[in-house]
Amino acid sequence: MKRLSTITLALAALHTAQADPQGVTEDNLPLFHQALKERMTFPLAYEGGDPSTWRERVLPEVRASILPYTASRPFDAKLIDEVDRGSFVARRIAFNVTDESRITALLLVPKGEGPFPAALMLHDHGSRFDIGKEKWIAPWYDEQRLSSATEWAARFFSGRFPGEELAERGYVVLAADALGWGDREGNGYEAQQALAANLFNLGSSLAGLIALEDVRAAAFLTELPDTDPNRVAAVGFSMGAFRAWQVAALSPHISATVANAWMAQAKGLMVPGNNQLRGQSAFNMLHPSLLQLLDFPDVAALAAPAPMLVYAGEEDTLFPPSAVEGAMARMHDVWRAHGAEEHLTTRLWEDKGHVFTADMQDAAFEWLDAQLR
């Protein structure tokens, strides 16, 4: 009897001392997310010493974390059609971007004698899926897409098509659709989660596949006869900026990078109200094990000491300025350690939101000219 009473009292004490259940916030963060943040120590981040040795040690692990496999299928490029646009020729081509996927792309080639510097243009997300490559280059083959692309250019690019701006400057320009956009359009915003889950179950990931295709597109651009293989840039806006500094880290073919409107420290993005918590679009930039290794600015810094430009808007609600500035400072540490801090240009633009306006483009492209000419 005495033992039963003791057990009863112990259970009663346990009941009264029970903690509140640790559930989920309205932003779908676990209530214990701060404790999980403290576990994020980024063990492979640069912490001083020889940055080249750090890169040699870390890059293979980052590649293994991001890329699902190494593609080797011949590109086998074919011309679909082309139009004359004055100082350059605009071509629609098809090539094998991976061992499984053959895609269409837009290729702009300046007139005159090459080889020319080149730019791999990496499009944004924007929850707009009917256009991908057309966000950079005005299509001549589809009136509806031209209407969508013109609207997009007015909203984000001061009415310009930045790919064509670079072609006018004498660059070979390549733009292709990521899986889910343009010619590869999926089933809408809400279907991204299912696509990502299915790719996880296929031993891959949506973000990893996009990264693999970008690495392959860089190699393809480098091999084109009009391209100078030593002067190939990655240029991106928003999600495309993420892709730009990512491919610069992963590919030996990228010699300079322009990344506008996607750079921040991960912990600064994982805060209530941030777009990163919405799911869906985040799957396109979600590598499941990457943040167990290192933070976003350290991934970008694997491209050092090659030239890189990183812009952000001070009024961009998607990227808190403190997280952006912290990331930029981390990157400067690595370029400085290489003795090449002058090769890294960062700027938080006043009175700018999530845009790549004409003045931002002009400054970025003049910087790129100075690096590659």
Rank of each mutant, 00 (worst) to 15 (best):
T41C: 06
D99A: 04
R184I: 05
S251Y: 02
E190G: 00
E366G: 03
T41H: 01
A304F: 09
Q18L: 14
T41V: 14
L107Y: 15
E61T: 10
L309Q: 06
H338V: 01
D369Q: 05
A233I: 01
A176M: 13
R155C: 07
T6A: 09
P51S: 12
A167E: 04
L290E: 09
M121Q: 04
A300Y: 14
F75V: 05
Q193T: 13
P305D: 08
S255E: 14
E61M: 12
G339T: 05
E223H: 09
I103G: 00
K135E: 11
R85F: 01
I93M: 11
A167F: 08
D228K: 03
N260F: 07
A175G: 07
S87A: 14
P162T: 08
D99W: 12
Q265G: 05
A329L: 11
S72E: 14
H332N: 10
E38Q: 13
R160S: 14
V271E: 06
F356D: 00
E100G: 01
D214P: 05
S205H: 05
E190T: 05
N275K: 06
A196M: 06
D351K: 15
P117D: 10
I131W: 10
F365M: 00
V324N: 06
W136A: 00
S289V: 08
H354G: 07
S5L: 14
D84R: 07
V324H: 01
F220V: 02
A138V: 02
A17K: 07
P68L: 08
A301M: 09
E82A: 03
G170W: 00
L318R: 15
D214G: 08
N274H: 11
A105G: 07
A233H: 02
W181G: 00
V89F: 00
L36W: 12
Q34E: 14
